[in-house]
Structure formats: C-alpha cells, structure tokens
Amino acid sequence: MSVGSYTERPTAEAGEKDGLSVPWSRPRPKRTGVSARPISALTLLALLAAWTVSAELQLVSPVFLPSPAAVWTKLVVVARDGFVDATLTQHVAASLWRVFAALIAAIGVGVPVGLAIGISKVGRGVFDPLLEFLRPIPPLAYLPLIVIWFGIGEPSKVLVIAIAMLAPVALSTAAGVRGVSRERIDAARSLGATRGQVVRHVVLPSALPSILTGLRIALGAGWSTLVAAELVAATRGLGFMIQSAAQFLVTDVVVMGILVIATIAFALEFVIRRIERALVPWAGRE
C-alpha cells in the first residue's frame, strides 16, 4: 500500500456536525429497511402455513401431526372441560407452582453458595466440585434416587427441578462476584467499609446483573426438567398432561401442551427482561 492512499480517506459528510470528530469515522448509518422482528414474525407465519397445508393435504396422519385447527379446538376444550381430571388452568397452576417453588429454593441456596465460591477459597474448594458433579447429570438419572429418598410427594418434584436450577444460579452468582472490579472494592475499603459491608454494599449489587442472568438460565432449565419431575405419581401439571396424552396417542393434546409451555416460558423470559431493565439499568453501561 502506498503512503499516498492515506490521503484518500473519506472526507466529512455534509451532515456531520462535530468538527472535532475524526473524519474517517463516518456517522453511524441510520437503520433503514429491514429489522429482525418482522422477519421473525414471517418465519413463524411460514411455519404455521406449512403445518396447515401439510395437515390439510393429509400428508401425514393426524395421529402424527394434528392440524392447527384441531390443536386450537383442543385448547378450548381442555380449558373448559379439562383433561385427565383437571382443567388446563389447574395443570398450568400446578406446573407454575412447582417451577417457582423450585426457583425460590434454588435462589435461597444458590446465591449464598455462589457468593461463597466467589469470595473465599474454602468456599470454592467445597462447592465447586459438588456443582461440577451435579451439573452434567440429567434429571431423569437422579429422579429415581430422589423418589427413593423423599417419596413420591410434591417435595420430590420441586426438589428435582430445584437441583437442575441450582448450578446455573450458583455459577452465575460466582462469576458475577469474581467479576467485581478490584478498584471498586479497594475504593469501598478505603472509605471505611468492613469485609461484611464490602460484600453487602459492593459485591452483591455488582453481581446482580449476573445473578439475574443466572435466574433466566435456571428458569429454562426448570421448564426442561418439569416433564421429568411430573413423570412419577403426578395427577396434575403440564408435563403430566403431555405424558398421559402421549400414552393414549392424543397427539393434539401433546402438541397443545408443548405450545402452552413454550408460550409460558416466552412470557416469563419477557417479564424477567423487564425486571432486569428495572433492577439493573446500569448493566452494560458502566
């Protein structure tokens, strides 16, 4: 490259206001035309259309793929009359209760554990191997053991979900704690903060964005575990509903159940993002 080519950098655009700004850093182009959202909507519509067409043309048997209309009808029917002795609302309520009870338990244990891992070598020594051991085990593998230990009641179901949520909560908390800037801690100490005050007033709030991310991941893990948790001796719940339907090949209820879970998970994700924006508006802007 010749030296002369340096002089060919783009000159300031007509609309550029700031005379001091570097001339070759052009103003960021305005977003024109497409954004991601309508594309996503279109993708969903296309998928729905393909589903409708293939069901309409009977490309596959309704036992394998019921039509969207059938699934919608089923939703209305189950919402009104119920399926396997409980209405849709009751199934949803049972599942939501389990997931949230588990979430609260996971926060109660996971945040202190994550804090211990993040701030003390002893804490890390004790809890890190335990979490690493627990994390990769699929819930279906430890479900029988939980049932042997704690019976087939509600506590077992909540526990199975909570165990799946524990690692993401604890590890995100630990990552957040370890990411607190040295200067911030030193500044607090030089302002007279004791060790306990540093943890409460500096470390925890600094780790909050990371903790909330952990909760989001944990909720995802919780919904994935729900079906496993409701495998044994459940009489209500979305996971139970799907499994019962599958046993009798009521495929439209299976599909409906999947869509209900997806909708709820999507709504929760939205709510948590809102909470994040309200609680940690500084995240990413420091």
């Binding site: 800037s181 200067e183 911030r184 030193d186 500044a187 607090a188 100490r189 030089s190 302002l191 007279g192 007033h201 500096v202 709030p205 600094s206 909050l208 940690v280 500084w282 802007r285 420091e286």
Partner: peptide, 28 residues
C-alpha cells in the same frame, strides 16, 4: 489496612452504578 483517614480516588472512578451521584457521595 485501608482506612477513611486516607481516602483513595482511582483512575477509573470506581463509583457504584446502582446508586445515584448523591448516594455515592454519601456512601461512607
């Protein structure tokens, strides 16, 4: 040990973003 008789100010302000400017000043 560090102490409030020798307050430190760092290059990167090390302020607490979850607090307002007033609350930061009032921290100690």
């Amino acid at each position: 040990a560090p102490g409030p008789d020798r307050a430190v100010v760092f290059q990167n302000d090390a302020l607490f973003p979850w607090l307002t400017a007033r609350e930061n000043v009032a921290f100690t």
